[in-house]
Design a protein around this nucleic acid. Structure first.
Lengths: 253, 253
DNA sequence: ACAAAAGTGTTTGATATACACCCATGT
DNA sequence: ACATGGGTGTATATCAAACACTTTTGT
């Protein structure tokens, strides 16, 4: 927990460097070997949980800010971050860091301001992540999506909205390039979809549809070493993958 | 064009009442009898065109702000407004109202600030609209989507993004409740879709699909008086319509 | 009578779903 | 040998696309 002096300094710094009233919250979904997690911070002392977020530097593009926050929290760079919604209820930040709310007069206290928050989500391989708490947080850890702690503020709603957006994305954009190793098997990719959707899919239909997107290339190689029949290895055709990210799969009209 | 004194007063007022660095831009698509338009403002003197926008009051929810802007510009209330993107490039507002940029020192000049803008779109019946210019604008008019003037700032990009979002929306949400009269014919509704998509649709397939959504109720009545065979009248089943707005039509996974 | 608009199918092809069979591999 | 996972294929239903015929109405 910050002392009054530290808080004062933080606030004056923030006022100098960041755009006021604007924050970014990142919903970092992590996936590895069939497990789906989300990155959460636990506040010092209070113990409450919240999404990793941050502020936008005065001359910084918001996409850059989102990437910076993600980098600071995970060490990961160059990840596909998707803006999905702005949350702008004036009441939403009422309880923000209320542990600090009486330590400074409101006009000097960055944390008692109203914040609109821009929501971004990312989907990363949590095996590659080094979760790093920020100065307000005791801990930064992967939490199971099906077993979340109670979240502060409107962060539960933000997370829910992000998950809906991610699921919607599956309908018209490819996914997985950050997540899968360079080469992967079809069942491995299927596991990703099943985990996101929280639903079993038929392996044969999945494969047909996936190949239909035209973003996969089958290698001559097989994944040896596992038990049972060795599956083929696939990789993304990056050119087509990126084109599909931009264009989207066909809509219906 | 404002005098220096008026500008000064406007800026001081704005600083007092609005959240800094945040704006809202509305892409108001208008439709009536097969014509699709977009509402644009033309700045006084300069003659440049831009999207109707505004700012967020310090204690106002952003959705309310968007509705207020729409109301001020069109007189319309209770219209489905869809947030679609935040534009946050620090360079985007560089040329904002540059006619005023030298009239006040930068620190006092609201208009030389950086603004993130939250994009909303709406689809309204332009027959019901009374376009009303704001104090900076000489004119507020419906422009043909296929024959747009050059737009200031990044407003052309915002408009394009809004149109894409609107078209995407057709795939998973109903549309038209604000637009159509209480009762309307299937060909009338089809015209709306064709206009948005800028594409002809087959009348029989359109009808089948539309009815499949389960949001329409066919009346016993026919639309009499036109030439040729009298078409049936339909109305939206508001309950199902609203449910579909929330839930969306089925995705594919 | 006829042209034009609208109602109501049908045919065809594509895609989704469900399911069956065979193959490879470690135990 | 066998259980398990993986490759491949097929039947069926469902849906989209293209298209034809009939009905209504004003001129």
């Amino acid at each position: 927990m910050l002392t009054k002096k530290e808080l004062k300094e933080y606030c004056s710094n923030a006022r100098e460097n960041y755009l006021p009233h604007i924050s970014i919250d990142c919903v970092v979904f992590g996936f590895h070997e069939g497990l789906m997690k989300v990155l959460l911070l636990q506040i010092k002392n209070g113990g409450e949980w919240y999404l990793p977020g941050g502020f936008v530097l005065k001359k910084e593009p918001i996409e850059t800010a989102a990437n910076r926050v993600l980098k600071e929290r995970t060490g990961l760079n160059n990840i596909f971050l998707q803006q999905f919604h702005v949350f702008g209820d004036p009441e939403r930040s009422k309880q923000h860091f209320d542990m600090y709310k009486d330590m400074l007069p409101a006009k000097d206290n960055w944390f008692t301001n109203r914040f609109l928050t821009i929501g971004y989500y990312a989907l990363v391989d949590f095996y590659n992540v080094n979760p790093a708490p920020d100065q307000f947080s005791a801990d930064c850890i992967w939490c199971d999506l099906n077993n979340l702690p109670e979240l502060k503020l409107d962060h539960a709603a933000i997370l829910k909205t992000a998950l809906d957006a991610l699921r919607l994305q599956l309908n018209y954009q490819p996914i997985g390039y950050n997540l899968m190793p360079k080469e992967f098997t079809m069942p491995e990719l299927q596991k990703l979809y099943e985990t996101i959707l929280d639903e079993k899919l038929d392996r044969r239909n999945f494969q047909r549809r996936m190949l239909g997107f035209g973003i996969l290339k089958r290698s001559e190689q097989l994944r040896r070493g596992g038990a049972h029949k060795a599956p083929y290895l696939y990789s993304f055709e990056l050119e087509n993958y990126n084109a599909a990210l931009k264009e989207g799969f066909k809509g219906r009209w």
